[in-house]
């Protein structure tokens, strides 16, 4: 193990996309995606509404089959791995949360331990500790017994992130993680993601805020409305022309603290 790591400077990819075409019903094939997501990388997916960003994340999570191509998770075909194993490696935060029944905040964070527990097993003290720690990380400490129906949109979103943290996966797949969050909590949540990535995990997130993506992601995947896509390091991808074409919106470009910033041009 250690020999091969010495020979290979780049860590083995956690997630490999080979000629991947996602299946968006009623839509033609998009450009096939060929990329490796490695430990320590944070990938941002940018694109206009309806470009298929969420569908791609769901496909990467193994929740829907791709139209073509394959996804490998640590070298093994994703579709052939048991769901329980996948759930220990991939943690997904969804855009919407279905809360059909009443549940408390702590219970909701604790379901993140599900892939680690055997059928008859109850959550242990360590599982509770992990859930409480995750709740502290997202600023929900002290709200453990609150019912989820009483949470605000932003608090519910942070709880979903706490559930994913409790799940403790190698790869985080985050669909609009900053949705409903105020400015402080947007930065706080992305800081959590950055720390997780620094620990050797990886993250793939869809974002609408180009400037946050520029600051937090080291790689970007741009998904155009026509189905084309391009990807690379953030520095390569943040070209004003490309972004203007991506969103169909003229931009004003500036620079703050040595980083490019983009604003929509308004009349």
């Amino acid at each position: 193990m250690s020999d091969s790591r010495l020979l290979q400077p780049a860590p083995a990819p956690l997630l490999t996309l080979m000629d991947l075409v996602v299946d968006i019903p009623g839509r033609g094939d998009g450009a096939p995606l060929n990329l490796d997501i490695r430990a320590g990388q944070c990938w941002g997916i940018l694109g206009p509404n309806g470009a298929g960003k969420s569908t791609l994340l769901h496909t990467l999570a193994g929740l829907r089959p791709p139209r073509r191509g394959t996804i490998r998770l640590q070298g093994q075909p994703l579709g052939q791995l048991p769901r329980r194993r996948v759930a220990r490696l991939l943690g997904m935060v969804f855009q919407d949360h279905q809360d059909g029944f009443p549940a408390t905040v702590l219970e909701t964070a604790l379901i993140g331990r599900h892939p680690y527990l055997r059928p008859w097993e109850m959550e242990s003290a360590e599982d509770h500790q992990a859930a409480l720690k995750a709740l502290r990380q997202v600023d929900l400490a002290g709200m453990e017994t609150r019912l989820i129906a009483t949470l605000s949109g932003g608090e519910r979103q942070r709880l979903a992130i706490a559930t994913a943290l409790t799940q403790d996966p190698r790869i985080f797949l985050l669909d609009e993680p900053t949705n409903h969050l105020d400015l402080h909590h947007q930065v706080a949540v992305l800081d959590i993601v950055r720390r997780a990535v620094a620990e050797g995990r990886s993250a793939v997130l869809t974002l609408h805020d180009v400037n946050l993506a520029a600051r937090y992601c080291d790689h970007l995947l741009l998904m155009y409305p026509g189905g084309e896509a391009c990807w690379g390091t953030t520095r390569e991808m943040l070209v004003p022309n490309a972004l203007e074409r991506l969103y169909g919106q003229a931009l004003v470009t500036g620079e703050v603290e040595g980083m490019p910033v983009f604003f929509p041009r308004t009349r």
């Binding site: 759930a87 279905q98 809360d99 379901i111 599900h114």
Partner: peptide, 22 residues
């Protein structure tokens, strides 16, 4: 023994699948 899986299923089928439920 399915109880915990049912708890997760109550959160919706996608969330349940993402947490390892078949």
């Amino acid at each position: 023994p399915l109880g915990r899986s049912l708890n997760v299923l109550a959160r919706g089928p996608l969330q349940a699948a993402a947490l390892g439920v078949a």
